[in-house]
Amino acid sequence: MPVPIASTLGMLGDNLRKRKSALPLRRRAVTGWTHGLDIPRGGETVLYTGQMWQMVPAIDAMSRQLAKYEGRSSARLFSVARSMNKVLNLTPFLARTSARERAAFDERLRNIAKLLKAAQVPFGYLYEDDLYAGGLAHDEGLDEAFRVQAQRVADALRRHGVRRVITVDPHTTNMLRSVYPTVVPGFDVQVKSYLEVLAERRLSATTKLGETVTFHDSCVYARYEGVLEEPRSLMKEGGITVLEPEMSGKLTFCCGGPLESLFPGKSAEIASRRVGQLSAVSKRVVTACPLCMANLKRVAPAGVTIEDVSDYLVKAYCPTPVPA
């Protein structure tokens, strides 16, 4: 028996309609990662996070809570929670996160911004208008809530005169690049993942890392958006040997992440199978999606590290600051 589906999806739809996010975060939690980076507001080209990296610690915490109710008769409890959530945002209570957890995910956004700066890519940021793109509502078939959110995002981009968007995760890339043009009339913003932007520049690494890893392709990057070679070529130039696991590239195996809310048990089983495939090749696993990273990390045994590709790229491509 899964977590009560109707109430859980209902809360998602309510949050999106009323609070413009699947898991509404405080403003500082969304934009705090920019501290000290001097990223200008707006511009024709913007880095667009869609709040995904910022939201993952809350998704993680929420999944831990929801897992307690899988297989139990808890429909009434969830129905009450949904009613309360309509009045009071329950996210901060149900998805408590520590400053340390949030900082770890923010650091990946800082990596990406530093990489773009090192590659001399000019970009701005929308700060409070960096809205969630609505991917979860789309995937769960909450079409009306998704359509409204997509229009909000499109309006924000238009208001700021944005022509090009650089995305930082596969889900936001897919929403903005492949789904928005089908639901938002006239949506013609150019959308590229930061991995594509960096790979196009054919950068030279400043440091050859000399490390060996295995790479987990995100289903969305690999099979929805065709982002396959970019992370590999960037790592290779950075002196990283990338070993391919059983099932990679276009035939990658899911991390189980899409089930973490409604079927946490099944999600963990699938994640464990994937970690097994990956760790058979290398104990150092690299991902390019915050949801994959979090889901695989949750089940990884001691000795297996799950890191983001930006953790490696920032060491390979950004010059190390000279100590004062």
Binding site: I5, C219, C254, I270
Partner: peptide, 15 residues
Amino acid sequence: AETIFSCLLCRLCEA
């Protein structure tokens, strides 16, 4: 209904 919501939408089948 539950089965429909258990799909990962991973597209391994579709590929």
